[in-house]
Design a protein around this nucleic acid. Sequence first.
DNA 1: AATGTACAACTTGTATCTATGTTGCGTTCA
DNA 2: TGAACGCAACATAGATACAAGTTGTACATT
Lengths: 230, 230
Amino acid sequence: MPQKSARPRPDADSAPTQERHTAPAGDLVYQEVKARILDHRLEGGALISEGDIAAELQVSRTPVREGFVRLQAEGWMTLYPKRGALIRQAGPNEARDVVEARIVVESHAVEAITTSGHGQEVADELRELIRTQSEALDAGNHDDFAEIDADFHQHIVLRAGNGLFIDFFDNLKDRQRRMSARSVWKSSEKAETVLAHHRELADLIAAGDVVGFKQRLGTHLNEVHHRLLP
Amino acid sequence: MPQKSARPRPDADSAPTQERHTAPAGDLVYQEVKARILDHRLEGGALISEGDIAAELQVSRTPVREGFVRLQAEGWMTLYPKRGALIRQAGPNEARDVVEARIVVESHAVEAITTSGHGQEVADELRELIRTQSEALDAGNHDDFAEIDADFHQHIVLRAGNGLFIDFFDNLKDRQRRMSARSVWKSSEKAETVLAHHRELADLIAAGDVVGFKQRLGTHLNEVHHRLLP
DNA sequence: AATGTACAACTTGTATCTATGTTGCGTTCA
DNA sequence: TGAACGCAACATAGATACAAGTTGTACATT
């Protein structure tokens, strides 16, 4: 029997009636600390305290705690009672695990897309993305280039339509971002290589060649990765 | 440059020095509320408030809030400012998505296991699990039977060694649990069918037949599922 | 009757306060 | 010299206080 069987509810998963004009302090903490972890302003292994962040961000410790709990739930830090918050190390296998997981998830997404007959459609959307990414490169906008690069892969997973994989892939994206945060696509030669790879991947999707896609994606990710970590 | 570059740290991801003797109230809230969601004592669509849970569990709102934040991060509820916490609906595609994701993750795990040459080893471990599960059935212990059933599949993912997939699979397991919470393996005939399926799956792992495993797993999950959602 | 409005009840957001656990270091004692 | 002890500094856990947003309803107004 339901606990108390609910008051009028805001219509299953609808948006809040009114937007906030002031960002909640808890979200601020979450986003700010996560951003610092992803771009290595906070290094793995560092031990920080609620008080430090609270003072720096000019909020009380309560919303800091809220942010910390979220970050722990997502695996970015570990909370030690009465001790502090430890930023989690990347772990020796994480790079391998992320690449492996991406290959599995993205390849499956392509299979789902092609077997449902949306291969051409999605391939066209990806080519459009490649076009804008190419423009970003020409304009020298490296940040946009990197962002669209991530969008390309995410779009594939998005279009496959499995919400669980979509959420999981978000996590993978963040982890990859932390690992490759130090590198930028300054060399246009390397950037062109990435574009070429993406064009091939889009073609393979259009052709419905799932195994080909999987192989190419593997070489793509590994090649990108080896230019970053040597 | 590192923020403040850390005080002495408790040796990367080590356990806390001393165990607690009293369970933290925040964990209590998290586990209790999650349990209620998984077994439908809290239904999807219900709107609950921090105060209700706090009063019922005899703690203040602070740890309740902590638990709620964790539950939201894991996708079990949505927090609406000044309104309350809405238990998320299962979603019309969730059953399909969970099965799809499980097939992908488990099949990949088998591929990783067999290509690394641990197929026989893992198959033997699984057979041992099947043995204990069979004993639980004979003893009429349906709860243990269901638990070992979940362990069987989790073990495969565990042995593949990818920490990201392991965490993801935990999530899948909980979602499946919520969906099938109302059914029990009372019929020993159905239970025997499950055991037979698991034996076949173990055999396919031993034989290194990844595509065979994937197919069998698909029929297994769908068959199990169709007996639940008729 | 339909509509607009003021208000009471309820809920969260955040700050603050108290209690307690942990650590590091200086002091003491063998 | 070195180990044990005590204590101050620090950190979190949880409770509580208070401010502010949201909603349903009763009631006045048209």
